[in-house]
């Protein structure tokens, strides 16, 4: 049944049961197709269910209806094919920087120990943390911790990289630096990425495609092909060009409209 799309979200819905037994729809049946190598950003009002959609792709939540396919295979649960980077610092404090990145390779039995070491050091270098290889996690900054998490996830060689507001807890400067690094990484690795954020600038800067979600229960409000108007190689200078500002304005208008609608409903 799976068609040629790399990731196929087919009529997927999600509902939660409240403690009083009532059913709360979080995601209305929706379909999204993602092509291999695409960088898709999910934006929407806070609490809209965009993270839930991504977690279902990652196999960390089970859809109440519909199916998700990754590379032609139905998603049944979490595994190494779907790498995840969380907002909170998920690097293991009992391991060093390099130890954390090695952990990404721990459960790969397709490669030798020497190869694992080489890959770990490669990603350590790629995120610019070679001088900090032996530091423990409590001694490095929040931005570095997220770089460790990204390197660890990439080392596991997933088919898709799922990022849940990974820069949300960082200060503005670290966030900018990591956004640039992520764009470089992504160009080098050609990974398929789904990235959840509520920061519209971040969305437009990073995305090939932006999916705008409605307020809860989540529907797809707009599917904007950013790569059609903006160049693939971007820098922070792009924030000033008219095409960027137009997309940004459109997305913000959609989200604001949703938030007004939600407040009116309450």
């Amino acid at each position: 049944m799976a068609n040629s799309s790399f990731i196929r979200i087919a009529q997927v819905a999600k509902e939660f049961t409240a403690p009083d037994g009532s059913i709360i729809p979080v995601v209305e049946p929706l379909s999204i197709d993602v092509q291999e190598g695409e960088f898709v950003v999910f934006v929407g009002p806070s609490g809209c269910g965009k993270t839930t959609v991504m977690r279902m792709v990652g196999g960390l939540e089970t859809p109440s209806a519909g199916d998700i396919y990754l590379n032609g295979k139905r998603v049944e649960g979490p595994n190494r094919d779907k790498g995840m980077v969380f907002q909170s610092y998920s690097s293991f404090p009992w391991l060093t920087v390099l130890g954390n990145i090695r952990f990404g390779l721990k459960y790969r039995d397709d490669i030798s120990a020497d190869e694992k070491e080489r890959i770990a050091r490669h990603y350590l270098d790629l995120v610019g943390l070679t001088p900090f290889a032996d530091y423990t996690i409590n001694r490095i900054s929040g931005g570095m911790r997220q770089r460790v998490a990204i390197a660890r996830t990439l080392a596991a060689n997933p088919l898709v990289l799922l990022m849940d507001e990974p820069f949300g807890a960082l200060d503005a400067l670290s966030r900018e630096r990591l956004q640039i690094q992520l764009m470089d990484l992504r160009r080098a690795e050609r990974k398929t990425v789904i990235f959840v954020t509520h920061d519209v600038d971040e969305a437009v800067l990073l995305a090939d495609r932006i999916i705008v979600f409605s307020a809860r229960p989540a529907r797809v409000l707009a599917d904007i092909a950013v790569s059609a108007t903006l160049p693939e190689k971007r820098s922070l200078d792009i924030l000033d060009i008219p095409e960027f500002r137009k997309i940004r304005r459109d997305v913000l208008a959609l989200i604001r409209n949703e938030e007004t609608r939600m407040e009116a409903a309450e």
């Binding site: 990652g58 960390l60 979490p78 190494r80 998920s90 660890r152």
Partner: peptide
């Protein structure tokens, strides 16, 4: 133990025992 640690382990391919 934070849920993120467990979920990180799972998405890196750890079995339940691991």
């Amino acid at each position: 133990v934070p849920k993120e640690f467990i979920e990180t382990g799972r998405t890196l391919g750890a079995s339940d025992t691991a």
